[in-house]
């Protein structure tokens, strides 16, 4: 086949984007190249060093490649690399920095479900699951990955506009002695202390306490 000249500009900003340990390699196209660029991807386990090609990301024209399966052991650290091809030319292999799935992932907010009685609201929190290969695979909660996981819960009284904060470790909470017929909005955040990680706050879930039947 024709000789490949590796003088094509390099892919840019090659990095892992990780959410709940779904680890996706992303990059930007080489400067000044339009359509028609193709890419190859390889990865390696730090300390092993053997580069392994990712068949599903061979000569792709998109600028991402899901390496979650290949980087699912979060006791290891990884590198990945991308090479660009265009009209018989190619770029260099451009590598990521060392990727540590345990500390370099972003955690989603917890799922929040709320219910109410006349004078209380009940909150149930569910930590997100670690990425898994298929729906059939057994789910692993991030609670199992990060044993020190805690929740910050915010409760806003829509009438008084006052916001209270709770720090809890378990996943259920009841806020008693509230005002009947009043709307409360709840949002929650995950905090991990070792390593230091925290999610954004979830969106607000609003619910009203029931009206006081005696009034």
């Amino acid at each position: 086949s024709g000789e490949l000249y590796c003088s094509l500009p390099n892919p840019r900003n090659v990095h892992f984007e990780s959410v709940n340990m779904k680890n996706v390699l992303r990059w930007l196209p080489p400067e000044g190249t339009g359509a028609g660029v193709f890419y190859r991807v390889k990865y390696s386990v730090y300390g092993v060093g053997k580069w392994i090609r990712k068949p599903e990301c061979k000569y792709i024209n998109r600028t991402w490649c899901d390496l979650s399966s290949e980087t699912s052991d979060y006791e290891e650290q990884y590198y990945a690399s991308v090479k660009a091809f265009l009209n018989g030319m190619c770029s260099d292999w451009i590598e990521t920095t060392r990727f540590n799935p345990l500390t370099d992932t972003t955690i989603d907010p917890p799922m929040v479900s709320v219910s109410s009685t006349e004078k209380s609201i009940s909150i149930i929190l569910t930590a997100p699951e670690k990425w898994k290969r298929s729906p059939e695979e057994e789910s692993v909660s991030l609670l199992q990955v990060y044993p020190g996981l805690q929740y910050n819960v915010s409760v806003l009284n829509k009438k008084t506009k006052k916001r209270w904060f709770f720090s809890i470790s378990n996943t259920t909470m009841v806020v008693p002695w509230l005002e009947p017929g009043t709307a409360y909005c709840v949002s929650a955040q995950i905090r991990v202390t070792t390593p230091l990680l925290h999610s954004q706050f979830s969106k607000e879930y609003c619910i009203s306490t029931l009206k006081d039947k005696t009034a």
């Binding site: 300390g47 590198y79 920095t97 060392r98």
Partner: peptide
Amino acid sequence: ANIQARDPIKSLSILS
């Protein structure tokens, strides 16, 4: 990132 960038040897880990 600064320190790891100074380590080009990916095929060997001291601790692992």
